[in-house]
Design a protein around this nucleic acid. Structure first.
Lengths: 194, 194, 194, 194
DNA sequence: TATGAATGAGACTTCATTCAT
DNA sequence: AATGAATGAAGTCTCATTCAT
């Protein structure tokens, strides 16, 4: 169908352009040009420039959530689950560098210019972490003093900041596996019930 | 001196305005208005809008670095040093919410529109963490497998993401002491040489 | 016939939309939507947006002319004829408020953007008035000093301006009969051969 | 002073451009160009395009009101006053053709796109007529049956429609004095207490 | 005939920056 | 040093019109 085709093309183009220039410096005509559509066509699929950003975010985070949840469903051990989450996130960052860059910025920015926007998708995403921690605590694997509400943010922040390295500086010293290993290692050791 | 007075006033105004609106939505006239100077006056102290942001960043991060280094100099134990770093950062975020907000965004954004800008001040700041870790490893307090280059980013990312909560949502569930305690606890446990 | 059915539907929709929004703010898609046809369909019946306006004008004024001429044909007394003209015009305004509104604006506007358009239908309409006056002068009922070319415009302008009241402010102080009576009264007294 | 100078220049340019093209076809850049200022400068003096129109209207009608009231103050006879009003209006139309054109359009249009705008200046202007009629009725010069509220609109409409002739068709058959004479004649005869 | 997705020119408005005072 | 009026480039969004289906 032509419709969803253009929608997808525009989203894909927007991811690249936003990643390259940032939201504010990106021009609608850049996105349109890269998507191979006319400027006006964008407005058949999105209400405005912000709407592209929001839609993009929700759609892509949604896909990531589905994917990671599917993989986690096959696991029982919360330690292994955390490893998977970390690895998958970093993998995603490497495979979809542009997307990662956009999501990172957006997370910090969208609330600046869209006060009303409640980022529920993101909350759903990081709540995956707290769910894992919770489970680990029930199984007496993770210490009960750990507060999942704080730890989930710590873990996400740690991964995200590491990821920022590659995004900015693609040929960094540390590779993905090394990073994933360190992150998992430190947090598992940090939360482990001795 | 009157000159530096205006300089300081402009920086202070810029911090607030950038925090409120974000860099791109902030207008020079907003900053000028809040600083109590004419629009044109800003250009006597700064080359352009970006320059305000960069100057602000360097100046303020510089102050933070000096402050935290001074406190850390009085400590020997790397564990205690890490606790101090974490606590001090979170404290700064709470006391200077606007500044924290700007620094957070800027960190993710500045490279987007100023490819050439090398954020040396920020690097200096997070290198404080790796120095602590290094020291801890030498003293056989932290495990040797920990890579300070990765861990420094993890720790900074973790703190920063927790801080983002208050900035967005000032009356959050977790208070500063609780957060600082959790962060220190998990990372110390995670890096501790058993 | 289906064709003329759509044509009529579009005209009817255009009358309403133009009345509500004015010509320039009215969108083709508004008209299409209200007419229950696709945007593109409009261009099977009209050359462009202006053409709708012109066609509408000619068609509707044409109908009004036919109607008023038919009624006037049954009258001999030019005084009575003038009364009928006035009454009929005001009646039309009240019964077809949207149409009246469009005709009023269009009269003042169409020449602005279509310099070439010669509004012959309108001229035909107000010439009904001058014909009446002429007749009255021949019958020594109206004074010979009255210049039908000026008086016709005065009378039309007077009625039209009174009508504007209802269009803007439907629940005005004066009702249609009162207004018609006053207009007829003043003009007849003003033109009457003592 | 530079300020009011530009303000006046912009208004003057707007009058011409609106008269030539109509409000909607007029571009800000047309007005700016004719006023000899930059596009942006317009927004130092007006909030938006509509605001130019409204300001223009209020300012110019205001001037006309002041002028006509001053002349009427010197008269006692309401018949003479009406003559003066009519003559002055038509004179204004001829001397300031562009302005007249704009005022005419605006009167019919502004309510179309600015529902909230209450045209108080215009009301003040035509109330001059009703005041004259009232006075004439008190002096037993005009018939008591005349309703000033209707008659004022009739008279204004009549003048205005006659004026439209010149605006559209500058070399018309009837000149200003002839028109003024006819209008005064018919209305005075129509309202005269025999 | 009819559709409606797509086009792309065009306009309003903003705002960083300049410069005469 | 300071001002703030003026500039004008630039970008988002609208919408009349087209055309493949």
């Amino acid at each position: 169908m032509r419709t969803s085709d253009k929608y997808r093309k525009i989203i894909a183009a927007a991811v690249e352009v936003f990643a390259e220039k940032g939201f504010f410096k990106a021009r609608i005509s850049d996105i349109a040009g890269r998507a191979g559509v006319a400027d006006g066509t964008i407005y058949l699929y999105f209400n405005n420039k912000y709407d592209i950003l929001i839609s993009l975010f929700e759609k892509e985070i949604g896909k990531i959530i589905i994917k990671v949840k599917k993989r986690l469903d096959q696991e029982k051990d919360p330690r292994r689950m955390l490893e998977i989450f970390v690895a998958q996130h970093l993998e995603m960052v490497q495979k979809q560098k542009s997307l990662a860059e956009v999501l990172q910025m957006e997370l910090r920015q969208s609330n600046k210019f869209m006060r009303e926007y409640r980022n529920t998708k993101f909350i759903e995403y990081i709540n995956i972490i707290s769910t894992i921690i919770h489970k680990g605590q029930k199984m007496k694997i993770f210490r009960p003093e750990i507060k999942p509400g704080i730890a989930k943010r710590m873990i996400f922040g740690a991964i995200d900041e590491c990821a920022r390295l590659w995004v900015l500086n693609p040929n960094s010293t540390y590779d993905i596996d090394e990073t994933a290993a360190q992150v998992s290692y430190i947090f598992l050791a940090g939360m482990n019930q001795p």
